[in-house]
Every structure is written in structure tokens, then in C-alpha cells.
Nucleic acid binder design. Structure first.
Lengths: 159, 159
DNA sequence: ATAAGAGCTATAGCTACTGGAGCTTCAAGA
DNA sequence: TCTTGAAGCTCCAGTAGCTATAGCTCTTAT
């Protein structure tokens, strides 16, 4: 399965068509071209991008992968694999299962977050002075090092 | 060196102490100062930041809130509320429950993602040419535009 | 002919930090 | 006292994945 654009194409899409069809913004399409995910299409006489069917298929692949939460770099790898049909499927599996693992980790983290927030909210308020939530937030965690190991949302791993 | 409850009487912390104690990086502390979350402390003769107990408590509050996934702006609001103890607790509750809702939404989304990834991975691999994952990624699901706004082939633009 | 809408490039902004360069200051040991 | 290494300082750039704006040009319909 090749997802690269071919020159022999009778369909002509403007960038707006492509964006609408794939459900992303025009700027996003240009951005994908800029970072090398989507190859630069030929231009019209007025310097406007002219896309073909293969571009559409490749963009659809990209969007679908992004929807599933694959990073741009993962999409790059997946595209590379999709373009070399003779290789084993193993590496594709690898990427997908690593991603699944991350997703499951995220779910775990969010669930414990949910529990804590629910606990915080199980008091009803008077004045802020006695606000349980503020109170709870003021207490530092037992394990300070834990915070530095996680990203901003407390979910994504730190770099 | 950790700032234990005993050591907290010593109200002279270096930025490194503060960072270690709160479990974030030195740069992060400076960043919080820069964006106005943490007030600028006095400096030593050699121009180094000297923090006190109140700084420590405020930073702990910030880190705790961030761990719970509150955005910087939310933390700003929460801090503001914590600083005006006569107001009602209602707004604090508001922020927290809005946040809980977001967390629950995220969990829902990730769970459906998880289901799909598991489905993708439920096969064994041969060549990429027949790879189910690549196949599945190539099929777009959420592009109502493609089917409804385009011609019968779903690809040709209306021009 | 004209006007609306779409496309073009270039650049900046978003979140919440993180890392590095190139410097100064501090504290401890010889 | 000198030295050395760690820690501090400021300033700037970079991360991911777009999104938005400014100020143009091009296309298309009337």
C-alpha cells in the first residue's frame, strides 16, 4: 500500500478542498508540507497548490493516525513503513503497541486524578478561609520528586 | 537537602533548596517568578534569590495544583482566591468541578482510543502489504465532509 | 469591471516548561 | 589565601502541533 502521491492523477484539489475533505485546517495542510509529512504538490500558474488523489489519501492517513494520538514522528515512521510494502509488519505493531501502552498509562493517571478531584469536591463551601480545597492544595505531597517526573498536565512523561 | 518540617523555621532558602523541596527544577521556579505566579524574592549581596517560608508555601501550592492538572491560569485564580479568605468558596468549587469534568472527558476519549488500538492490534503480522493496521489507518472515519459534500466518488471536488 | 473569497508567504503566538551559553558567586578543602 | 567545583545569574532558543494574523495576490462569479 503506497500512500505517496503519484504524478499521474486526473483529480485536482485546491488546498481548501483537501483541508475540508480531511477535516483539518488549510494552515495545517501547509504545515504538514513544511515539516515534510506531505510532499509539496505542483503549483498552478498563479502559484497555488494543486493536489491529486494520492495527496488526499496520504493526508487521510495522517489525520487518522493523529486522531488516534500517534505523534508526528510516529506518523512519519508509519508512513515510511506503508511505503515499503515488502517489509514485515512487526515494526508497525511495535509502534502501535507502544502507543497503546502510553494511552493506558494516561488513563491510569487520569483516573487517580479524578479520584482526588472528587474527594476534594466532596465538601461544600463556606468561606475560602475554611475551604477544604484550598486547604488540600496547600499541603505539599509526601514525595516531592514525583512531580518533576511528569509533564505539565501531570500525565505526559517529562522529557 | 530536603526541607523537613523542622528545617522550615530556617527562612533562608536558595533557589536550589526551594526547587528540591517542591520537586521542580530551578528553571521552573524562575519561570514562575517571570510569569508572576511566585513573587520575586529579595536578593543577597551577590544577587542571588533568597526565599522565605511564605515562598515555600506558595510554591508548594502551585506544584500541588499543577500535579492535579490545573492550568497555570487556574492556579493563578486559585491563588487569588486563597489570598482573599473572606470570599465564598463557590468559585473555587467551580474551577475544581470544571476541571473534573475535563478530566472525565479525557478519560472517556482515551478509553475509546484504547479500544480502537486494541482492535488494531488483534491480528498477527505478515508483510506490510497486508498489514491490518496500515489498512485501518488508511480508512478515514470521521470525514463526513468527504462523503456528503463531494461527488459520488467522494473525492472529486465540486469545481 | 469589480468585489468577494480563497490562496500565498512570513512571522508570531499558544502551553508549561526545559536546556544551553557564558558569565559570576559561594563554600569547602589544601 | 588560593583553588576548584557546584550552584547561581541572565538571556535566548527550542519543544509539539498546530493556529492566527498581516498584507499581499489570484480566482471566480456577476
Amino acid at each position: 500500500m503506497m500512500i505517496s502521491p503519484q504524478a499521474i492523477d486526473n483529480t485536482n484539489f485546491s488546498i481548501g478542498d483537501l483541508a475540508k475533505a480531511s477535516g483539518c485546517k488549510v494552515q495545517t495542510v501547509r504545515y504538514y508540507e513544511q515539516i515534510g509529512l506531505l510532499p509539496a504538490p505542483p503549483r498552478s500558474l498563479g502559484n497555488q497548490r494543486v493536489y491529486g488523489d494520492a495527496h488526499f489519501r496520504r493526508l487521510a492517513f495522517i489525520r487518522r493516525s493523529r486522531e488516534l494520538g500517534f505523534t508526528i514522528d510516529m506518523v512519519r515512521e508509519l508512513l515510511g513503513m506503508a511505503d515499503t510494502p515488502d517489509r514485515s509488519c512487526e515494526m508497525v505493531d511495535n509502534i502501535a503497541s507502544r502507543h497503546l501502552w502510553h494511552v493506558q498509562e494516561k488513563i491510569r493517571a487520569l483516573k487517580s486524578l479524578q479520584r482526588e478531584l472528587k474527594r476534594l469536591l466532596r465538601h461544600d463551601g463556606g468561606k475560602v478561609a475554611e475551604c477544604q480545597i484550598i486547604e488540600a492544595l496547600s499541603k505539599s505531597t509526601t514525595d516531592g520528586a514525583r512531580a518533576s517526573k511528569r509533564g505539565a498536565d501531570g500525565l505526559t512523561p517529562a522529557r
